[in-house]
Amino acid sequence: MEENPPLMRVQHLFRKGLFLPLVVGALIAIVILSGLYIYYQKQITIIEGDNVLQVKTFKQDVKSVLEQAGIELNSNDLVEPGLDKRLTEGMEIKISRAVPVVIEADGSQIEIMTVKNTVREVLEGEGFVINPEDKVKPEPDDEICPNMSIEITRVTHEFVNDTKKIPYKLIKKKNESLEKGITRVIQQGKEGLMEVTYKVIFEDGEEVERLVVSENVINEPQDKIEEYGTVDTFTTSRNETFRFSRVLNMIATAYDAGEKSTGKSPGDPNYGITSTGVKAKRGIASVDPKVIPLGTRLYVTGYGFAIAADTGSSVKGNRIDLFHETYKEAMQFGRRKVKVYILAE
């Protein structure tokens, strides 16, 4: 039978009483090594957004355990606690990923990567001072999202003094001794003057609103007072009484059918014919149809009854041209101020 050297060595140790101490020593070594393993191994929790990763590691710092977990960081990402912090049992490591954000303010635009949570935090982190009147869009307490655009509108104001005219009022009064259609100014109107203080609001240097803060009257306006006639009847020098709808103050001239007045001679087929096609005779008046419609019956002081039945190139506005049978009569009538009564229907 062949001898077994390892077995023989064990039997030798056993006979000498050395085997048991060796076994106990080995067990103690195993226990110590196991304790050291457990002592130096740490349970670490890595949190990134909604993702939670549990890691067991012998690494000593945050950076090393992230590398162990295969987590890559960008330069603007935030790790809490910091990368050089020593690991402790049960430590939680939180990773906040930087997102791109655009800020438009003060005439410029910048693009940044940020891990801040709100618009306000981003602006404070970039050194932007927000004044009480400034406008921020989105709202300062809104949460940041990737590719968000933040706009700052600078709002300022200043107070400006200016003067403004105060319009006068027109007061009309009846005058029962004045003919209908005639007005008379009793008192001229005068504009007043007011000093106005405005709060002028600017957005990014452009005026957007002007608010009245105070008004101070320097000169009160003076009302314009007019009288208007209500008398609608007129009695001629021959005691003829008629009703009229209105009366006009006009400049009257005179004309006849001859060449000097109309440019037409007796051989002309249109000689003595008005623009409305009726024969020219005393009582025909040439008018501006925009002032007196053709066909209107009239009474003209210093001339008599007439009908608006002719027009002329020089008869415009407040002018009336009255027909006479002869050139001599027309010249004698001349040019004068008249009242033209528009007869009632």
Rank of each mutant, 00 (worst) to 15 (best):
R120M: 10
P6W: 11
I292T: 09
D321L: 03
P167R: 06
V247D: 06
Y40P: 00
R282I: 11
V136D: 02
E72L: 13
S261H: 10
Y299C: 02
N51Q: 15
L211D: 15
I152S: 04
Q332A: 14
F159Q: 15
E227I: 08
L87R: 03
A29V: 13
E67W: 09
K164A: 08
R15M: 11
D232P: 01
N131S: 13
I320C: 07
K85P: 00
L322Y: 10
L178D: 07
G192W: 05
G229F: 02
P132I: 07
K63D: 12
V24S: 10
E143I: 11
T197W: 00
A308R: 06
L20Q: 11
K56D: 09
A254K: 04
P269F: 04
V10S: 07
V315A: 01
K169T: 14
R282Q: 14
P132T: 08
K172A: 14
F128D: 01
V136M: 02
D141T: 13
A330C: 06
K339Y: 12
E191M: 13
V208P: 07
T241G: 08
V31K: 02
K137E: 13
Q54I: 09
S108M: 12
D310K: 09
F159E: 15
V213D: 11
F242A: 00
A285G: 07
L78V: 10
V31E: 08
I130P: 02
N175W: 11
E203P: 09
I44H: 00
K59A: 12
Q60E: 13
T276P: 11
Q54K: 15
S314E: 14
K260Q: 10
N147V: 03
N76M: 13
L294C: 08
G272S: 05
L27D: 06
M91S: 02
V99P: 01
E203R: 15
G295S: 08
I307L: 09
S149M: 14
I110E: 14
T262K: 05
D268I: 04
R97E: 09
V217H: 03
K339S: 11
Y39A: 14
I307A: 11
K264S: 05
F202C: 09
L53G: 05
G70N: 08
D256H: 06
Q54L: 15
E220Y: 08
R15F: 06
G229T: 02
L66S: 04
E195N: 12
C145P: 01
L294V: 09
V338L: 06
P140W: 01
Q60T: 14
T114G: 01
A309L: 14
E207V: 15
V52C: 04
A306I: 02
M91E: 06
K63W: 10
E92D: 13
R15Q: 14
R86I: 05
